[in-house]
């Protein structure tokens, strides 16, 4: 699924500056526990989370996750966004809570394991 479609489904706002609309994700993971992300997430995934600290970005860096959606309208502080920019990670924010955001993406065809 292209990120343009992700942003439309979630009514999300993109907070980073690099081009993003044509980037693709193969699967998604909704999680607030970064150790679980480190344990289970596969390649080319999108992470939905309610955590907004720098360790979210570091976790994504280790896992080659290139897109993060912060739920419940959360917006990270500037240093977190700067770190994401440095790592080439696209950051979005949506007003949907985690469960609904995951459900909307799943309903529209974005699976959990890259099928």
């Amino acid at each position: 699924m292209k990120l343009k479609q992700v942003s439309e489904i979630l009514h999300a706002k993109v907070l980073t500056k690099a081009p993003w609309e044509d980037l693709e994700v193969q699967s998604a993971c909704g999680c607030d526990l970064m150790s679980d992300v480190l344990a289970f997430v596969k390649n080319q995934a999108l992470l939905l989370t309610g955590l907004v600290n720098p360790q979210v970005i570091r976790t994504c860096e280790m896992m080659d996750i290139k897109t993060v959606v912060f739920v419940r309208g959360k917006v990270p502080q500037a240093p977190v966004l700067e770190l994401a920019e440095d790592m080439g990670i696209t950051i979005m924010t949506t007003d949907f809570p985690l469960y609904i955001a995951c459900g909307e993406l799943y309903k529209n065809g974005l699976g959990g394991r890259g099928e």
């Binding site: 607030d32 970064m34 992300v37 344990a39 955590l51 360790q55």
Partner: peptide
């Protein structure tokens, strides 16, 4: 825990 760690997965992940 507030940072998303401390749930008892660190050492098992390192071993894995």
């Amino acid at each position: 825990r507030e940072l998303g760690f401390g749930a008892g997965m660190g050492l098992p992940n390192m071993k894995k």
